[in-house]
Write a protein that binds this DNA or RNA. Structure first.
Length: 472
DNA sequence: TTTTGAGTTGTTCGA
DNA sequence: GTCGAACAACTCAAA
């Protein structure tokens, strides 16, 4: 008659959940628990609080279908765990591992404290194809370049195992907080009002996205993933972040699709490589824990970043006067998401046109992205800045007009998110300031702003600034 | 230890 | 309009 506790963190799912499966197999009673930390090491962004609310709601219903009740508690995790274990004579605690440095430290501390009280702790890999410490070069170093890293991963990929629960233990009924009392949802103003139009948090929503991706999007993924006006990307990132679906299931689904002779292999491998980038980011963060704050390449510590509150605010609100940039920033604000291609464009603009510190951009993304993930966010911003591992060379500066014309030729993406430009001819949609007099139905500077900076001048200045980093 | 080839996502300029 | 070179060397990973 042993009792177990499963501590849900970034694994808000029932299927293919190794820690939960083990807990169910080995114990007769189970307490499923989620803890809202009162002093989190890594406070969640506002957009993700919205997601968390709905994901917990979905998880709670999913558990309920199997006779279990999700227990919600608020406080210091160790104190909550100890209190519950003692009150219910729980002998074993299960969880899936987290990989952010502060979470590793937290879990290590909690594990030691529980063991000291005679409580067993079992942890599992529930979130990554390859955990960061399992991949290394022949010299035993960690990888700093993606391509050899991913080659190595592919060469040692373990057989996927998708453990499912066959026997559900008895419920341990316990008092729980009420989810609405956590006040995760915004109110006054309800800026998340539009989110539910685009997203269905939870395991079911994640599974639906995957099915849609395999059946409708995979075939043309390699060719269309860069076109923000198309619905060509999987949009699985927030589901992956919260662990509503495991990378193993994606891996397996792609392998299955590849067995179909009609499958477009370049697309399938391209998608897997995107999973690879997620893994690579975690690998980098694990081995270089300062990644979210410190330049991976220390020579960037001398970079002359500008402080311009007005420019930052216009970037955040999507009022830079560069349509593709503004469309991206508004997509982010309205939907909690931004197309990958456009993320690179807006990041390049903030860093290289406005010369604003990449950490400032990362912090805005952290607060507004539903898929905000410490490893991915830090690694990607540093990549654009040039301060990161395997980074873009400093002279790779995106031209927002060319990028717009190349990847959004008809302007449909811009028109969707910047409605004041909806009437502009596609010839001028990415550079309305060049339109001849009378060609625009709107007035620049009134309905839509003039460019915040001149890109050619900004580019030249950025190149000069990057020159200063070179050793004398 | 030394050598060698390679490295997500771009832009501009001049022929 | 199209194409290739230059942009700047440097670091990484494997042989």
């Amino acid at each position: 008659m042993s009792k177990a506790l499963h501590w849900f963190r970034q694994d808000l799912r029932l299927r293919d959940n190794p820690a939960l499966t083990a807990a169910c197999e080995k114990h007769t009673s189970l307490l499923p628990l989620y803890i809202k930390e009162t002093q989190p090491a890594l406070p969640m962004g506002a957009a993700q609080c919205w997601w968390l609310h709905h994901s917990l709601d979905a998880l709670s219903q999913g558990l309920h279908a199997h006779g279990l009740t999700l227990c919600l508690r608020q406080g210091d995790p160790l104190a909550v765990l100890l209190q519950l274990c003692e009150a219910q004579q729980i002998d074993t605690v299960y969880w899936n591992r987290c990989y952010e440095p502060l979470h590793i430290a937290r879990d290590k501390h909690i594990k030691a404290a529980l063991l000291a009280k005679g409580i067993n702790v079992h942890s599992f890999n529930g979130s990554l194809l390859n955990e960061p410490w399992t991949i290394s070069t022949q010299n035993g170093q960690y990888y700093k370049v993606f391509t050899p890293y991913w080659r190595q991963c592919l060469s040692q990929m373990p057989e996927p195992r998708l453990p499912d629960i066959t026997h559900w233990p008895d419920n341990l009924p316990l008092a729980s907080d009420a989810l609405p009392d956590w006040q995760l949802l915004p109110h006054k103003p309800d800026w998340a009002a539009g989110f539910s139009k685009y997203w269905q948090p939870g395991e079911q929503g994640a599974g639906d996205r995957l099915a849609r991706f395999i059946s409708k999007q995979l075939q043309d993924y390699a060719d269309e993933r860069d076109i923000p006006g198309r619905d060509a990307t999987s949009k699985l990132s927030p589901h992956l972040h919260f662990g509503e679906i495991s990378p193993w299931r994606l891996w397996q689904a792609i392998q299955e699709a590849k067995r179909n002779p009609a499958c477009h292999l370049r697309s399938a491998d391209r998608f897997l490589a995107e999973l690879g980038w997620r893994e690579f980011s975690h690998h980098l963060l694990y081995h270089f824990p300062g990644l979210p704050e410190q330049n991976f390449r220390p020579e960037f510590n001398a970079f002359p970043w500008q402080h311009d509150e007005e420019a930052l605010s216009r970037w955040q609100r999507g009022l830079t006067g560069y349509p593709i940039v503004d469309a991206g920033m508004r997509e982010l604000w309205h939907s909690g998401y931004m197309h990958n291609r456009v993320r690179m464009i807006v990041a390049s603009f903030l860093i290289k046109d406005l010369l604003i510190d990449w950490r400032v951009g990362a912090s805005w993304f952290w607060d507004t992205l539903l898929d905000a993930d410490l490893a991915n966010n830090a690694a990607s911003w540093q990549w654009v800045a040039g301060s990161g591992a395997d980074a873009a060379p400093y002279f790779r500066i995106f031209n927002p007009v060319l990028q717009g014309e190349k990847f959004d030729p008809s302007g449909e993406y811009v028109k969707k998110w910047v409605p004041e430009l909806a009437s502009v001819n596609s010839k001028w949609i990415h550079k309305p300031w060049e339109a001849p007099a009378g060609a625009l139905a709107i007035t620049l500077g009134k309905e839509y702003p003039r460019p915040l900076v001149d890109h050619q001048e900004a580019r030249a200045f950025a190149l000069l600034s990057y020159q200063t980093l070179k050793s004398p």
